[in-house]
Write a protein that binds this DNA or RNA. Structure first.
Lengths: 334, 334
DNA sequence: CTATGTTGAATTAACGTTACGTCAGCAAGG
DNA sequence: CCTTGCTGACGTAACGTTAATTCAACATAG
């Protein structure tokens, strides 16, 4: 590959001029004709700047890392989109990693920790990283931003509390009185559960205990089965994790429970898949795309040493997307 | 951050010795006591090697890029896994990009093209990259491996033809005579359709034309509706793309068609979601994890200048996962 | 006619690493 | 006693880029 030195030789100028042409530097001036000659030589030689040399010289790689706890979760699609887009606007590329593969001593982690690989790190799923890994990350000289509630780090997140509240209030307004909260574990679902409690109390209803069965399809199925074993079965469910809604639908079918006629379901988070399930699932859409964008902006604030605007994203708010899985409870429809 | 120079000073040795300790080089020898002293100094100073400088010196970044056409497609989960794992075994990290964001002039593409960013590139979804982008990629000095059938590039792929055949033969063996192939577009679905044709002809059945409605949930729904408009409705469907199966199930429900009683469905590719749909979807599992691993191995063959073992992966073969969406046709069950 | 500025460049010192070449000191062999 | 070989290191030139510094040539002002 051609280097700046080759271009300089071909154009009959010095290295400095080529560098100035490449970067549009104002410090080193030149005649327009010289610039043209250099550009011409660059084209002829097929010159491509060497990013590595640039990074070494500038101590900046124009690359940020994003670590997700469960990279396959479709709710992260828009998040990834927002991050990639905002990163591109900062002239940066994204190195994506899965928390599951980030065990201590893993290649990905070593790579992040060795200085000079990335300019900053975004993490979603801090709780899933073990303490060793977090300790190593903390010692990293480059800024780290957590994409969820965090205690001792700059963070930014969507409003999980409000999402739980919105889903629950919707069901309460439909006339449901026995509403349960199903699935989840960890800080995020705790926040959503608190939102659920708040809405229940505001409606003068008795909150049920958190049926924390975990994440994913199976968690939804397990949660529904548990809920149905109660002395008085619920007429509505708030599902902590949207993929758990798939499991709730499956378990309901297996148990002969008709949705929404016998049981209403509202999921937290929304993905395209929900439109295509039968019944289509009513869900609370979270501004994940905006979280991605805002996360990158906040990270670049940290990189630049500016004060970073973290906290809960309240604009836009979580938004209820009404489909077919929730309706008024049976007794009100008789 | 501490550099090798700092470590050398602290340990009272030269730069060369520190480098030798870091890399375990045999060229520069040293006493064990010296080695220990250097390691000690490294620990005390918190030395982390600078990957950028290393890359510049060695002209090798230990980073490979993977470009996927539809990064959100869950069938790519195991592929990604295989790639990340095999890459880690080669001491490399993966830079993941979406073909959709790879328009000409995009940041990600520029980054790949500027020399020195990655040691090689894996691409799945070549057809989705426009000609400009492919031309630019072709001019890249580092090797490129296509993870699907390709004409003028080294490639490796799973056996799509065989998958179409397996799905179709299974339905024919159940006794179905009117089987249609739904969804898809492009080379991959063409291969699967040819497998379908072969199985139909082997069973003495008349192949139906390819109902190419595209990818994803909606494509499945559209395909089913089209198929049902035929003078004699099919009793079974082979769905080109597994996510289209979701759409087929939804459209069937909307049209009042019972699955599997009135219509059997088999999808190509398999994802965990299929277990959790009702009915659970019978599908042909493709060795995507192995494709990922084999792809990385083949890419590293190219990087090392060795002849690369490309072509169709026949071990393991596509495997039928029987669930609840396919059964014998109605007339055979009467 | 000299001092001062401006234009348009060239030279060069880093950035942190790796690997080639060199070399002092010492032991053993002839 | 000289030669050879081995051990244990050191010095240094790159890798390709950027930016600070320097500088020649010429124009303009006093």
């Amino acid at each position: 590959m051609a280097t700046q030195r080759d271009v300089a030789r071909a154009a009959g100028v010095s290295l400095a001029v080529v560098s100035a042409v490449v970067n549009g530097t104002s410090h080193t001036r030149m005649k327009e004709s010289t610039r043209t000659r250099v550009l011409q030589a660059m084209r002829e030689l097929g010159y491509q700047p060497n990013q590595t040399a640039r990074s070494l010289r500038l101590n900046q790689t124009d690359m940020i890392a994003m670590i997700l706890n469960k990279i396959d979760n479709p709710v992260y699609g828009p998040l990834r989109h927002g991050v990639y887009e905002a990163a591109a606007e900062h002239g940066a590329t994204v190195l994506l990693g899965d928390a599951e593969t980030m065990r201590s001593g893993s290649r990905f982690l070593t790579r992040l920790l060795s200085q000079g690989t990335v300019d900053g790190i975004l993490i979603r799923g801090e709780g899933l990283l073990d303490d060793d890994v977090m300790a190593e990350l903390r010692s990293h000289p480059k800024p780290i931003l957590i994409l969820e509630h965090a205690l001792d780090h700059p963070w930014i997140d969507v409003d999980d509390h409000r999402a739980g509240e919105i889903a629950t209030r919707f069901l309460a307004n439909l006339g449901h009185r026995r509403i349960v909260f199903v699935g989840g574990s960890g800080y995020l679902s705790q926040q959503r559960y608190l939102g659920y409690r708040q809405a229940m109390e505001a409606a003068g209803l008795e909150p049920a205990p958190h049926l924390a069965t975990g994440f994913g399809e199976q968690a939804g199925a397990d949660g529904l089965r548990q809920a149905m074993q109660a002395p008085t079965a619920p007429t509505a469910i708030v599902v902590n994790n949207i993929m758990s809604a798939v499991g709730v639908l499956a378990a309901a079918r297996d148990l002969g429970i008709a949705i929404p006629d016998q049981l209403s379901v509202v999921g937290i988070h929304d993905v395209d898949l929900m439109r295509h399930l039968r019944p289509a699932v009513t869900a609370v859409r979270m501004p994940m795309y905006q979280l991605g964008r805002a996360g990158v902006e906040a990270l670049y604030d940290l990189i630049a040493g500016r004060p970073s605007a973290g906290g809960v994203i309240t604009d836009p708010e979580p938004e209820l997307v009404i489909r077919d899985s929730a309706t008024a409870p049976p007794r009100l429809r008789d």
